[in-house]
Design a protein around this nucleic acid. Structure first.
Lengths: 181, 181
DNA sequence: CGCACGATCTTGACGGCGACAAGTAACCAC
DNA sequence: GTGGTTACTTGTCGCCGTCAAGATCGTGCG
């Protein structure tokens, strides 16, 4: 029973919120229900997050950092397409985090921690495209980001049901844009 | 004043809901607030939509039909890239409808009206790509849809701020995928 | 050793929300 | 002009997030 007096409540809430969102969507997220599950009062989260928005912000920060790590690792291989595939893989592996990250209407977008985490996550994407030295860098960047983001959101929202593996589909899509030498 | 006894309440609710969602996001949509604005009771909408989900479903159906009309018109020109550009233009012109259309977690996806409206909207996209007879049709379709959907959602969510016109950016992006003959 | 203090969590209450059941008012057919 | 159907209202319920105030815990200082 260890009591939540030693720091694990914050993480427990984030983990439970992510599970709920992944299963039932963001609209079904009830902080009161999570508190009941964890055996704490319905206002316990306020000490750690301030408000519901604070919980979502924390989730978005966590997600961006995780994404940053995965994209960075993928970029190390030198193959830019791998970065795009890693983006899609992240979205499918962490659907709740990914969803929250891009729901700006539910976040405090001025939160410096969130701003920093976002910049960190997107560096590998920007750098990867820039290194390609294409004719129209802005279009190339938007196309690359757009297609992986589009595939991820469409699959996550249930609006796209690819016949096979989503990752390999993303790889084929990216190959159309950035043909292998 | 005319009294809402003759059929305009349904449309008035949909229009007010779209306005609210476009301005404050879907989370800020309160049917009670809309009812107060329109001067009707907080349950008046139930006769027409049954539930909150019903309102969103009606909005999604309306949006898909509108999208179908615009994509169909764009496809008539014979240039497939125009269909993609029209998709982005629709999203920016009708942000509330576009947002709701892809929030499957808030909709009754088995609603036959919605299923039909969706099929209608996506026919021009599918047909346009199929007509191109590319090597990997599934990848080509997902790439085209993915990139326009990705650009639209990123811009709408405030996560992408293109330097110039979004439509022309979309056109440049699509040109990378489907080079002009 | 004990006590004060700060961090953590609880209690209780408030207003706003969507859903529901039951009732009323307007229109339309006859 | 009356009966029935359609359109809306009233009142209530439980759940939600937020807030103010208070209880508990554990750590460090005298």
């Amino acid at each position: 029973m260890a009591g939540y007096h030693h720091g694990n409540l914050r993480d427990a809430i984030l983990a439970a919120a992510a599970t709920t969102i992944a299963r039932d969507g963001i609209g079904a997220l009830s902080l009161r229900a999570i508190a009941a599950d964890l055996g704490v009062s319905h206002t316990a989260f306020r000490r750690h997050f301030g408000s519901r928005e604070g919980v979502l912000n924390a989730l978005a920060v966590q997600g961006n950092r995780l994404l940053a790590a995965e994209l960075h690792a993928a970029a190390a291989g030198g193959e830019f397409i791998d970065v795009g595939v890693a983006y899609v893989r992240f979205a499918l592996a962490h659907p709740a985090h990914f969803t929250v990250m891009f729901r700006s209407d539910l976040l405090d977008n001025r939160d410096p921690e969130l701003v920093a985490a976002r910049a960190e996550a997107f560096a590998p994407l920007r750098e990867g495209v820039a290194a390609k030295k294409l004719d129209d860098p802005e279009a190339a960047e938007v196309t690359g980001w757009g297609v992986v983001h589009g595939i991820a959101t469409l699959v996550l929202s249930g609006n796209l049901r690819p016949s096979g593996d989503v990752e390999s589909l993303a790889r084929r899509a990216l190959s159309l844009i950035y043909p292998n030498p």
